[in-house]
């Protein structure tokens, strides 16, 4: 059994950001961390691989900064890590990205399941995983909150997903692609041994030539990145006893026609 997860590094979510005139984002000396949504996909892939005596591989697409996420994956217990890097990636949009991801999955051996996190917390758009599935021609199930059964022998699984208005249980043929939410598991902390092993591991890097692909023309143009207008006013504090505070609030909300 072979499970693959895609992951990358994102700026620490508390980082203060600045944008320069060219639209380049800088996060000062804030750290890069594994994309928070991916802690759950990494945990799930490692746990499923352990359960089935299989292999979990973590893949990052992009420059060296994403090794941070891969080392975290290895420290948690992923069996292998791989990075795809190529100058041509700089101009890729989501279809381009998915083309690379799908080619990588095809290149890896006998993949049964690909697990993604929900989205990348920086500029993620929550579509890479879906388009990867489409380009592979595999089914996709998003917002998975539980893998109820995974039978790689029979080539099927049963999962529960959480939608806005309730839950669904689905069965699905393998191989398949899923994305998971935070409630699927509690990610483990990497062990000391795990961290040591991960820091020593050498992580192979493949180029687009290794994958024998070229990228399709990008269809999305990113035009500018800026800070949204800040709200200037501080909160109006409503004093008094709880009853007075309540009355003052209701009066204000009525005036604003929120009530």
């Amino acid at each position: 059994m072979h499970v693959v997860t895609f992951t990358r590094s994102t700026p620490d979510t508390a980082a203060r950001l600045t944008v320069d005139a060219d639209g380049c984002v800088s996060q000062g000396d804030a750290a890069m961390v594994v994309n928070p949504w991916d802690e759950y996909s990494l945990e799930e892939s490692i746990a499923q691989a352990e359960d089935q005596g299989g292999t979990a591989t973590a893949v990052a697409i992009g420059p060296e900064v994403h090794e941070e996420a891969l080392r975290q994956a290895l420290a948690m217990g992923a069996n292998a890590a791989l990075r795809i890097d190529d100058p041509a990636l700089a101009g890729a949009d989501s279809i381009g990205w998915a083309t690379v991801a799908a080619a990588t999955v095809r290149r890896l051996d006998d993949v049964d399941l690909v697990i993604f996190g929900k989205e990348a917390v920086d500029v993620g758009s929550d579509q890479h995983q879906i388009q990867t599935a489409r380009l592979l021609g595999w089914p996709f199930i998003g917002a998975v909150s539980r893998i109820l059964e995974l039978e790689t022998g029979a080539g099927s699984m049963r999962v529960e997903r959480s939608l806005e208005h309730g839950k669904q249980v689905l069965t699905c043929r393998l191989p398949a692609v899923i994305s998971v939410l935070k409630d699927i598991n509690e990610p483990r902390y990497p062990s000391f041994m795990g961290i040591r092993r991960a820091s020593r591991a050498s992580i192979p890097v493949w180029s687009l030539a290794d994958l024998e692909i070229t990228l399709p023309q990008a269809l999305t143009m990113e035009m500018k990145l800026e800070e949204p207008p800040q709200r200037l006013a501080e909160a109006e504090l409503l004093p008094g006893t709880p009853a007075e505070q309540a009355a003052a609030l209701i009066a204000r909300l009525e005036k604003e026609q929120v009530l």
Partner: peptide
């Protein structure tokens, strides 16, 4: 909104 709403990205299709 991107970067947890700290920045706004403007993009377009082709």
């Amino acid at each position: 909104p991107v970067y947890a709403g700290k920045l706004t990205l403007t993009a377009s299709g082709s």
